[in-house]
Design a protein around this nucleic acid. Structure first.
Lengths: 211, 211
DNA sequence: AGCAATCCTGACCGATGTGTCACTTTTCTG
DNA sequence: CAGAAAAGTGACACATCGGTCAGGATTGCT
């Protein structure tokens, strides 16, 4: 095996692409359960069905693998964040955003949990992203919410507290999936159960802002 | 040192009580950051300022220590749960409950994060507690909310989704403290900042239920 | 087919983790 | 004060971890 610490500079072949995908998926699983420090590369390799040195072949280190997983999650977060279109009216914009967030929670619960575990460790690996992407996004939406409030289009809420409520409530369905399942007689929410909860969340979030 | 696997059967002395308190507190810190598997007894011992074998002297194993930490957190959870008094009217009862939950999030953020990390691992260590304490509590409060809804005292919401919203929104201030701090210019919320957010959360949760 | 590049993997290394234990020191009690 | 109980702790055994590497196998290209 050639000495090449810059694994990411290698040309992409079909095998590489497939194996990276498999390993990243397994890593997301294991990191979501045990966090960065609690997850072992051995567990990830086993989950992915590859030998452990292969994980190092494709990713230079546990940390590099973790960063790649986080990047992917951040991209998904940004995707849903784009649904908060501030040219629309409050009800339409918030409905779309909460809807997208609920869909993301449903489609990517483990990603959400990786994000959550990184938060509990102080979010060191997310600090640049929070500063460069999340913070500006929050400030822009605060401004939008204030504009709507001042135009009398929605009730006067603390914009930031409102945004936190949206995040918390939607991500709860991913992050606390185990609790929700336990409280649902040990069964995960079915698609129709989830759709009903989604509708309820949208309604409540809108009502919280007088919409 | 005598061979006594039943450490918890020993009479409690002042030194023991103090050292257990210190170790439990340190354990809560470390478990909240790295979760069960990622936390090491060595880290906990260092955080507590005691030699590692002393941690084993007072607690039989890492797992026993973890269970003790969780028990303490569950007791706090039950404390705040008692504030949801179903003899009161909806507004008073919900205000009291959300207030208590916000206070708990503020006073015990690390406990909340231990709870959250145990959730991300599937909540195995909490399954009995969820079944025996949380599930009955949720069912009783669902019934209460339905009674209020049917009496026309509050808007028709999905009771369970509403309870999840309360949990999510209040615990968010603990679980995502790192994010909130990052988004607050790197400074933790001051007491007055937090009080304002608390008031906003209470208002929004009430509004979500038409109160 | 030959060769280069890529991929795979058993064995290995030093570091770190859980837990133990013999022994020492300190505290408590009669 | 003496002895028992409680508390403290350096050293240790074994397991697991992050990461490495030589060499074999497979793939891709001319």
């Amino acid at each position: 095996m050639p000495d090449n610490p810059q694994n990411t500079d290698r040309p992409k072949g079909a095998i590489r692409q497939e194996n990276e995908r498999i390993i990243l998926s397994a890593a997301e699983d294991v990191f979501s359960e045990e966090g960065f420090r609690g997850a072992s590369v051995g567990m990830i390799a086993e989950r992915a069905g590859v030998p452990k040195p292969n994980v190092y072949y494709y990713f230079g280190s546990k940390e590099e693998l973790y960063k790649r997983v986080l990047e992917d999650i951040c991209a998904a977060w940004l995707d849903s964040a784009g649904e908060f279109d501030d040219a629309a009216d409050p009800k339409a914009a918030l409905t779309a955003y909460v809807s997208a967030k609920m869909d993301l929670a449903r489609a990517r619960p483990k990603g959400s949990r990786v994000w959550a575990t990184e938060m509990t460790r102080g979010a060191e690996h997310l600090s640049a992203y929070l500063r460069d992407a999340v913070d500006p996004w929050v400030k822009a939406r605060e401004a939008t919410l204030m504009r709507w409030i001042n135009a009398g289009k929605m009730a006067a809420v603390d914009p930031r507290a409102y945004i936190f409520m949206i995040w918390a409530t939607t991500q709860h369905y991913a992050d606390f999936e185990a609790q929700i399942t336990h409280l649902n007689g040990g069964k995960p929410l079915s698609d129709s159960d989830f759709a009903a909860k989604k509708a309820s969340v949208i309604a409540m979030v809108l009502a919280a802002a007088g919409l």
